[in-house]
């Protein structure tokens, strides 16, 4: 296994700013470098399986979400992961739970990345007063205890998968904004930007066409690592009883398992392991992507 860079070790933990990466990396041979990393390949395989299971959940699950059998059956031939307190099949529920995690991981990170790119690009490109103002705002969002804020908002306004996605997205953008700002500060002084500016390109085109494409690699790595954070956050909220009551999710299953420790270990063991495996897979894929994009900072 290849050791990951310090930057990637930090970035799987929220609230830690990433150091500015050197601008412009060679991107050819990305897959060649990624392929050499066995841990990253494992991560890619897990992530792919996760997406496939999420998309085809109704075809893969042996039982429907409303099929009830005898409750608390231990894992066996009919119910591989056993049944829960209501008598529904734990294996099928784990499969259905994939969908919520997939939706949350994908859309909350799309939201946070979009906000982060807008704010980070504006701050890095215009600098001066705009930069100061936006960075103060970013700092404020980063200092706030986000998990607790999410708890308060979901508790007050009610939980649905989409409201949770929106809240996680709105809380998670600061890291992206800071990262992109650092990239922009480094890139905007470079010759190709000067040249484009001299040719009379508008600010908007400079940002979107010239600088942004070159600043994307670290943003992509960051977004990948944020996916696992978002999945964990949704599961944590659901575990506390703040999940969407109309959707089966791994966090909700773990919440329900909490009352039946002494009767049914399988109610907690399987959904939690699915959550663990997914997070691990996405993280390893993100670390591998980071190493492949920054060949210089790979293991020493």
């Amino acid at each position: 296994m290849r050791s990951s860079t310090p930057a990637s070790a930090i970035s799987s933990v929220p609230a830690v700013p990433e150091p500015a990466a050197p601008a412009r990396r060679p991107r050819f041979g990305l897959w060649r470098r990624f392929r050499r990393n066995r841990a990253a390949l494992f991560g890619l395989a897990v992530t792919t399986a996760f997406v496939i299971v999420g998309v085809f959940a109704p075809l893969l699950a042996p039982y429907g979400q409303l099929d009830m059998a005898a409750s608390f059956q231990p894992p066996g031939r009919e119910h591989v992961f056993g049944t829960d307190s209501l008598g529904t099949d734990v294996f099928s529920n784990v499969i259905y739970g994939t969908r919520v995690s997939l939706l949350v991981g994908l859309f909350s990170v799309l939201t946070s990345t979009a906000i982060g790119i807008t704010i980070g690009a504006a701050a890095g490109f215009f600098s001066g007063r705009v930069d100061t103002l936006l960075m103060r705002l970013t700092e404020m969002f980063q200092v706030l205890p986000q998990f607790f804020l999410a708890i308060v908002i979901v508790a007050i306004f009610g939980a649905s998968v989409w409201s949770i996605i929106l809240i996680i997205g709105v809380l998670n953008w600061p890291a992206t904004a800071r990262l992109l700002r650092a990239e922009f500060l480094a890139l905007r002084e470079r010759e190709f930007v000067e040249a484009a500016r001299a040719l009379g390109m508008s600010n908007f085109d400079l940002i979107v066409r010239e600088i942004l494409p070159n600043a994307l690699p670290p943003i992509i790595v960051n977004a990948t690592l944020q996916v696992s954070g978002a999945i964990l956050l949704e599961a944590s909220l659901s575990f506390l009883g703040l999940g969407d009551p109309n959707a089966m999710s791994w966090g909700i299953m773990l919440h329900n398992a909490q009352d039946f420790f002494n009767r049914a270990w399988w109610m907690a063991a399987f959904p939690g392991f699915a959550l663990f495996l997914t997070t691990l897979g996405v993280n390893l894929m993100g670390d591998g992507l980071n190493d492949a994009l920054n060949p210089k900072t790979q293991s020493r």
Binding site: L232, L254, A257, A268, G272, T279, L280
Partner: peptide
């Protein structure tokens, strides 16, 4: 760096980053 011990510790830290705290707690209780 990159010795067997280092790799073992790296694997441990990757697992520790990915494990959901509440599930870890539940499994320890069980």
């Amino acid at each position: 760096p990159n010795s067997l011990l280092d790799r073992g510790i790296t694997v441990f830290s990757l697992a520790a980053f990915a494990i959901p705290l509440f599930w870890l707690g539940q499994m320890l209780i069980l």
